[in-house]
Design a protein around this nucleic acid. Structure first.
Lengths: 200, 200
DNA sequence: GTCTATATCTCGATAGAC
DNA sequence: GTCTATCGAGATATAGAC
C-alpha cells in the first residue's frame, strides 16, 4: 500500500521543487537567460523529466508567477491580522526594507518579470503578471480606504510605484542602502498622510 | 574627389543608422529578444555587414546606451536654459507625461535596459547603464540644491525613483493614464516642496 | 513515471568572394 | 568596404527505452 503512495508523493514533491526553484532562478537570472537545464539542475530533476510536469518553458514561468502571487497573498493575509491599516502598510514597507539586499542584487521578483515579459511579442503572460501587481494595488487601496483618505486607489499606485522605482534604482546602482533610505521616507510619508487634508 | 568622400559619408551614415535603430529596437523588444538580423533589417544594412561596424552584439547594446545618454544630455542642456530650477524639474516631469504612450508600451528605455542587463552573469554593461542613471540623478540633485532644499540627493532619488516606478506600472498594466495621474502628483509635490520645511 | 539521447531550430559570429 | 553563405554553439522540445 505504501508502494502506491510513495511514487505519487515523490511526483508531487518534484513538481513543487521545480516550481520553487523556477521562481528563484528566474528571479535571479531572468526568463531569457535561464535555461530549462538551469531549473532542472537546481531542482535536482533530470532535464528530460521536466517535460512530464510542464509542457513548455512558459508553463514554468507561469508557475513561478503563481508562486509569487501565493507568497504575496500569504503575506497580506498575515498583515490583515494587525488592527490598524496604517500599521499594515508600514509593515509592508518595512518588509521591503528588510529585503533590500535581495532587491539590490536582483530587483523585485514580480517587477523585473513584468519588464521582461512585456518585451515579448507574444503577450501570453502579460495578463498574469499584471494580475499579481493589481492584487497588491487592491490590497493597498483597501488600507487607504479604511484610513478614510481621498483617492485611495491613487495612493496605492503611488506606494507600489515608489517600491518598484526604488527596487529598480537599488538594483541598477547596486545600492541596498538606497532602498533603506527611500523606505524610511515612505514610512514618514505614510505617517504624515492626513484624512482631513486635501488630495495629496 | 567626391568619389573619395561619398563612401566615407555613407559608412558614417550606416553606423549612425545602426546606432539609432539599435536604440529603438532594443527598447521595444529588449536585448535578449532582439537579434542582430532585427537591427540590420531596421537599419537597412545586410546582416554580414553589421560586423564591419560593431564587432559584437554587446557593442551595439553599448552604442544604444550611449545614444540614450546623449539624448538625455541634450535634453537637460535645453532645460538648463530655463531660469528657475523648479521650472526645469517641472519641465522634466512634463516630458515624462508627454511620453506616456511609449512608456506604457515599452517602459523607460534606460530603466528596462538596466533590468535586463542586471540579469546577466557577465556584468560588463552594468556600469554603463548605471552611469546614465547617475547622470540624471546628478542633474536633478543640482536643481534641488539650487532651490536650497535639504538633502537634495535624496530628493533626486525620490524623483527618479517615482519616474521609474510609474513607468514600470504603466507598462505592466498597459495604462498610459496612470503615468499622467502620477505625473500630475509629482508636479504638485515639486510645487509644495518648501526650503523652510524640515527634511521631507 | 523516469531518464538518456538526440532531433531541430535559432542566433551570433566568421569566411571569403567581390 | 560590402555582402552571401554558412559554421558551430546552445537552446527547447521530443522519441523511445526502461
Amino acid at each position: 500500500m505504501t508502494d502506491s503512495v510513495k511514487p505519487r508523493a515523490r511526483a508531487a514533491d518534484k513538481r513543487r521543487r521545480l516550481t520553487t526553484e523556477a521562481a528563484r532562478v528566474l528571479h535571479e537570472q531572468g526568463v531569457e537567460r535561464t535555461t530549462l537545464a538551469d531549473i532542472a539542475r537546481a531542482a535536482d530533476v533530470p532535464l528530460g523529466n521536466v517535460y512530464y510536469y510542464f509542457k513548455t518553458k512558459d508553463e514554468l514561468v507561469s508557475a513561478a508567477l503563481s508562486e509569487h502571487s501565493a507568497r504575496l497573498a500569504e503575506f497580506t493575509d498575515r498583515l490583515d491580522l494587525l488592527p490598524d491599516p496604517r500599521e499594515r502598510l508600514a509593515a509592508l514597507v518595512q518588509s521591503w526594507i528588510d529585503r533590500r539586499e535581495t532587491a539590490a542584487r536582483h530587483g523585485c521578483p514580480t517587477g523585473t518579470l513584468a519588464v521582461e515579459l512585456d518585451k515579448r511579442a507574444d503577450g501570453t503572460l502579460d495578463a498574469e503578471v499584471a494580475a499579481v501587481i493589481r492584487r497588491l494595488l487592491e490590497w493597498a487601496t483597501e488600507q487607504f480606504r479604511q484610513l478614510g483618505l481621498p483617492e485611495p486607489d491613487e495612493l496605492a499606485v503611488t506606494l507600489v510605484s515608489a517600491y518598484q522605482g526604488m527596487s529598480l534604482l537599488a538594483n541598477a546602482l547596486r545600492d541596498p542602502d538606497l532602498m533603506a533610505r527611500q523606505g524610511a521616507r515612505l514610512l514618514r510619508w505614510l505617517n504624515a498622510l492626513d484624512a482631513t487634508a486635501p488630495a495629496d
